[in-house]
Simulated assay, not measured.
Amino acid sequence: MKNIQQIFLDEILLFVEETGKSVELNLIAQAKINLNLNILGKRSDNYHELETVMQSIALHDQIKIIANPISQLPQDLGSQILLESYLADDKVNRTAINNNFDDLNEIKSNLIYKAAKSFLDFFQIKANLKIILKKQIPISAGLAGGSTDAAATLKGLLILFNYLHINPVNKNNFFLSSRDSCIKFKELLPMAEKIGADVPFCLHQGTALCKGKGEKIFPLQSFALRPLILYNSALPVFTAEAFKQIDAKFFASKQLDSQSLIDQYNLQLNRGFSIMNQSWQNDFTDFLLMDHPHLQSVIDLFKATDADFVRFTGSGPTLFAFYPSYTARDLAMQILSKQNLPGQLISTYTSNPR
């Protein structure tokens, strides 16, 4: 018999399904764009100091986390994570990887695996997990496709653990732990930062000013429900390589008035694209256009279809273009689709946490 429970977490309604044989949770992992991206300099730890406004968008991956009974594990095995992934339009699985913590070194770079392993290790939990990814977000595209999957995994495991803690009859069947209290959201943040620079934002989502490596999050006024088109050229750009191309000066740390900066960005968001076009840039633009000069013609095409604001997101190579209305976006999508551009056009909109 199935038991479906409603869970509220930070105003997100989720459903935990308990079948008796497993406990399951479905989550949405939203992509992000960088409305601007300023590289302030290179730090003494070799990371770059950033100042960027990130925005969640409706484009998303889907993740199902299944906690199976621990009793099904071999006696000599600790926790186990099974990963399965496929593209959203595939009828059959593209990849199915069964692994435990000691096998398959190549999968240990997978951010879902890293997130799940970090969670279980940090909270000293034994579990028998299966995580299924339905992939829609392009990879290596500046959209946080891996980071948002990791963030959703952390959040999902927190929800499942807390659900079983509140409903303790079957807790030790699925999560074996000596912890006697629920896990708090803020406890995920140190793990998120270690997994990847965009993971903290993907945990928070919404509209936010991000500083440091991206881990310092300052929420801004909502910029949701704005129609846009993404263009992914299918030419992957790896962030580490992109940063090597940036001739950044040494960053001298200084005390800043964060509230003044937040107020400044909120004012600019409120004034909209007229001021954003003047002062919001992506510092990877010159590098991206030098390496991929054909993308300038795509920018010109976006502008020719009356886009209000066109920028690269992250280290690229994905471009995004905002339009004044959903009707204008849909008309532009029709026009652009006839251009036979190599790569992928995606119609979406900005969307705060779901």
Rank of each mutant, 00 (worst) to 15 (best):
D149L: 06
A150H: 01
A151W: 04
T153N: 13
T153Q: 11
T153K: 11
T153V: 13
L154D: 06
G156T: 14
L157M: 14
L157S: 11
L157N: 07
L158N: 06
L158G: 05
L158I: 10
I159G: 08
I159A: 13
L160E: 06
L160P: 04
L160F: 12
F161T: 00
L164H: 08
L164Q: 05
L164D: 00
H165T: 09
H165G: 02
I166C: 14
I166D: 14
N167H: 15
N167D: 07
P168H: 10
K171C: 11
N172E: 14
N172Q: 15
N172C: 08
F174S: 00
L176H: 07
S177T: 11
S178P: 04
D180V: 12
C182D: 09
I183P: 02
K184L: 14
F185G: 06
E187K: 08
L188G: 01
L188R: 04
L188C: 05
L188V: 05
L189F: 11
L189Y: 08
L189I: 15
P190K: 14
P190E: 11
M191H: 08
E193G: 10
K194Y: 07
G196R: 02
A197D: 08
D198Q: 05
V199Y: 03
P200T: 01
F201R: 03
C202V: 07
C202R: 02
L203K: 03
H204I: 08
Q205V: 01
G206N: 07
G206R: 00
G206Y: 01
G206W: 00
T207L: 07
T207I: 07
A208D: 01
A208L: 03
L209F: 01
L209K: 00
C210S: 05
K211W: 02
G212K: 01
K213A: 03
G214V: 00
G214K: 01
E215S: 09
K216V: 08
K216C: 05
I217W: 10
F218G: 05
P219M: 11
P219T: 12
L220C: 06
Q221V: 14
Q221L: 15
S222Y: 07
S222G: 12
S222K: 10
F223W: 13
F223D: 05
A224W: 05
L225S: 15
R226N: 15
R226C: 13
P227A: 14
P227R: 13
L230Q: 05
L230A: 03
Y231G: 03
Y231M: 09
Y231W: 08
Y231N: 04
N232M: 11
N232I: 12
S233F: 06
S233V: 12
A234N: 15
L235D: 13
P236M: 11
P236I: 13
V237Q: 10
F238E: 12
F238W: 10
T239K: 07
T239N: 07
A240S: 13
A240I: 07
E241H: 11
E241M: 06
E241L: 08
K244A: 09
K244I: 02
Q245D: 04
I246G: 04
D247R: 11
A248Y: 00
A248P: 06
K249M: 09
F250V: 10
F250D: 10
F250P: 00
F251P: 00
F251A: 03
A252C: 08
A252R: 02
Q255G: 00
L256M: 11
L256E: 14
D257T: 03
D257E: 09
D257C: 06
